[in-house]
């Protein structure tokens, strides 16, 4: 028969078993600590994107253009945003500013909000309602665009807001559902190129012929893809109109 100490939960624990269980308890606690350490210190760097509340509220005037995502060509800047710059916009949360921007297409508008910044990329999260975007008076030049031909790029399709700093990390597959939700809410999508394209790493990405990001592209958000499309320079911003038929994963 088995003469080993026999454990009965509601009776005192036999001596030799007590020692064994004490050792197991210490090992378990230490193991939990070690696992927490390994999982904690091996987290990847989430990138440099951030809300720049430290810059304070930015208010500039510029011309609204729909590509079809609304962008602003700065006419009257401030000490951080130069005239001639072109930037994208978002509303609070996972929403774009399309409804507010559409009536102002091709017109001068005052834009006010907080900057989201990641390296060379920045966009502005507008204040609510007309405080964020309203028609302005004054003379302004018509925005110019310059077609730069057809390209094949490798990189990742992201939602512009999380990428620019609303979330850290704001790209990649673990973040894909959130990115899709942002894009469904009309946040402008951005293509992150593996290497700079005519000097830019980040391009606003659209469907062909100034349409929204096609549904097929949503399946590729967060993955590494190769895709062909037309690049056009709008002010200081490159717009990449991808051809969804050419989307493929990189090897």
């Amino acid at each position: 028969m088995n003469d080993r100490p026999f454990f009965v939960g509601y009776l005192p624990i036999p001596g030799p078993l007590r020692l064994f269980l004490g050792a197991i308890a210490i090992l378990l606690i230490a193991g939990f600590g070690a696992a927490g350490y390994v999982a904690g210190v091996t987290q990847d760097d989430p990138g440099s994107g951030a809300f720049r509340f430290d810059y304070g509220r930015q208010t500039v005037t510029g011309v609204v253009e729909l590509v079809p995502y609304p962008i602003v060509h700065v006419v009257e800047g401030n000490d951080r945003i130069d005239p001639g710059d072109t930037f994208m916009m978002t509303a609070g949360g996972k929403s774009g500013v399309d409804i507010r921007a559409e009536p102002l297409s091709g017109q001068l508008a005052q834009v006010s909000g907080i900057v989201l910044e990641r390296g060379d990329l920045y966009m502005i999260q507008l204040r609510g309602g007309t405080n964020g975007l309203q028609a302005a008076d004054g003379a302004f030049p018509q925005p110019e665009s310059e077609p730069l031909g057809r390209w094949r790029l490798a990189g990742e399709i992201c939602d512009g807001k999380c990428l620019a700093g609303a979330m850290r990390p704001g790209r990649g597959l673990a973040h894909k559902a959130c990115a899709n939700l942002c894009l469904l809410g009309d946040v402008p999508p951005i293509f992150v190129s593996t290497q700079p394209v005519i000097g830019d790493e980040f391009l606003l990405v659209t469907g062909p012929d100034a349409t929204r990001l096609p549904k097929r592209a949503y399946d590729f958000v967060g993955q590494y893809v190769q895709v062909e499309g037309e690049i056009t320079r709008h002010g200081s911003l490159l717009v990449f109109a991808l051809d969804p038929e050419t989307l493929e994963l990189t090897p």
Partner: peptide, 8 residues
Amino acid sequence: VGHERPIS
């Protein structure tokens, strides 16, 4: 970890 900015 020495990240430039912390994870959200």
